[in-house]
Design a protein around this nucleic acid. Sequence first.
RNA 1: GCGCGGUUAGCUCAGUUGGUAGAGCAUCCCCUUGACGUGGGGAGGGUCACAGGUUCGAAUCCUGUAUCGCGCACCA
Length: 724
Amino acid sequence: MTTTNNLGQIKMNEKFTKPYNPADTEDRIYKMWLESGYFNPDNLPARFSEPFTIIMPPLNANGHIHAGHALAMTLEDIMIRYKRMQGYKALWVPGTDHAGFETQVVYEKKLEKEGRSRFKMDSAELYGEIMAFTLENKKHIEGEIQKMGASCDWSRNKFTLDEKIVKEVQRTFKKLFDDGLVYRGSRIVNWCSKHQTSLSDVETENKEQKDSFYYFKYGPFVIGTARPETKFADKYVVMHPDDKRYAQYKNGQKIEIEWINGPMTATIIKDAAVDMEFGTGVMTITPWHSAIDFEIAERHGLDKEQIIDWRGKLLPIAGEFAGMKIAEARPKIVEKLKSKGLLEKIDDKYQHSVPCCYKCGTVIEPQVKEQWFVKMKPLAEKALQAVAEEKVKFVPDNFRKIFNYWMENTIDWNISRQIVWGIPVPAKHCLACNEYFVDLDDSISKCPKCGATGADKIVKDTDTFDTWFSSGQWPLLALGYPDSSDFKTFYPTNVMETGSDLIFKWIPRMVIFGLYLAKKEPFKDVYLHGMVNDAQGKKMSKSKGNVVNPLDLIAKYGTDALRMGLIVGNTPGNEMSLQENKIKGYKNFTNKVWNIARFVFENTQDFEVDEKNAMPVHPWLVQLSGTIIPDITSDMDGQRFHLAAEKAYHYVWHEFADKILEESKPILKSGSAEERRAVQHALLEILATSLRILHPFMPFVTEEIWSHMPGEKGSVLIIEKWPK
RNA sequence: GCGCGGUUAGCUCAGUUGGUAGAGCAUCCCCUUGACGUGGGGAGGGUCACAGGUUCGAAUCCUGUAUCGCGCACCA
């Protein structure tokens, strides 16, 4: 530490009041940091040379930050501040996400409250309104990121709908298309009949429920089903080829049967997908409304017929039941089958789970729909390989298994959504021959397949991309891929820090796109924090009313206290309960640090040292540099921030304050001039080191005290060196 | 059904390679000491879910059981 001989100038100025008041300090300090320019690695002094990069997971610009964001911002900020102090050219790129479907759902709720509906709105008008809504929220959320103390580079702030990003996402689509990795296909998709869009496999949620399970006579067979309303046109009856009970029936054999709306011809199909143990071992299939049935139909080249329309109502094929909603039709259909003597029995204790829209809870109706799909298998194989070669590592490591499981069991990814809020799919559709083709800059007006022209034949695809299609490319896009100097300098990034729930939704897609586009993994470490629950360990939810707003906690206890409360004792990957008492305890600690500084400053006002006369190393300092610092540094390097924070806390309070300060008192009061000087020197040294160690965790109070450190006039703690 | 994680002080949770159990809050006692009462000193409180095993030694490693939570998949 540099000490000067003008320490008599230290004054307990008016800012050094008691107790410490975060509200008076934090915004001022954050502003000072912004003005220093050091959040931008380009402005760091030359000794900061080796890059260290974190890309902030783009926050959804449709609401406010929640406890999970607060934890993420804290962890990422700790990492970036620590590395910056170690002399890395630290870059943390902030960003926000338009969050396609999520935001549209939020906005639709708003419309609903106002008695409006998106289905009655012009798409340009709707887009404009959502854009205004999003930009407003984006501003709020960026302010909230700042309240958390995030030392990210705002000059590089990104938004998923930035023009350049939109273009790049569309170019990726074209590249995938050209490489044969994107195709237009009719496949089973998850259809939400409320939101009128298809959803990917990760946008559905399974709900456990108890239903009736019906057994019906179907010709010579008894079939079981939980969904009688889909059965009108079931003309294939399927059983396992090895099922001896039905050995007399041959694949392809036709039988005449009596069914819901009269007699029909059924065809026998033998397929190993049937579970002989379940029900009667015989089932009829509805390929249009079931993924399994669809696959059986594909294998055997069978007809597929739509029974339920896009709004969830029965089509004319249902005869007298046409136009009815499922819930209404089901009992009536069962009643009719019963009256025809076709009902064998009802098992009303059937436990199963049904997929629902993760936003509105509406039961998903599988539908066959023509959509854009990404072929996942070849992409997933590369991702698996990168992980196997440890180019991408997980903290904690057990998430590797989940990643692998997910990548080994991919299904083709439906990337098109029937909503306006998102990045447009840059494609056109020829109505004459049903050909779809990519058109990046809206320049093709002639069908490349059949040559048709004219606005009545060639129409633009109105779908938008799944949000994960753009956010999956985020590490690239946030750095200005493909031709920016940032991309060359900072890619691949060092750490991707995000919530553990994104291990399959997001992480694999980023790995895939990074490897596919840049031929290099997007990040070396994936650090996954657990979910933040309420004080009782229950998941926070609006409906339960147990949501804790981090901004309220900041107002009550200060950001530093909140950060410590989120970090100490919180191991990666594990859920945590947010205890307000704990945060209160760290508010006390913030004050403690403040008062330690007050004591040190008050008792060193007359301290003078001739820099030529090196002070002898005090035993207190030996302990600090010999044990405490290496220990904490090792925890930081091992990404055990929960331990590092606790150890720093413990040292500062229970060693520095409780023991060292107390021991110093009698010497300061009645020691010899030389003894006093030695103690004063040691106290200043320990204070300076403590501030450095605490800084990544508690940036505000430490920076504020630093600004009062004798001999450190004009220096900024954020770029001070991590102690050794 | 498959997979993952938890089970440690009254509560919420730590415990890095196995070496006599820790933190915060809560409880009890003492201290109106000029850095801080948002404080200081001290105390109580745990057969580390259970049962085996490995070891000189296990909260920690192995096997099994129970239980809670989460995720995935579906059997129509």
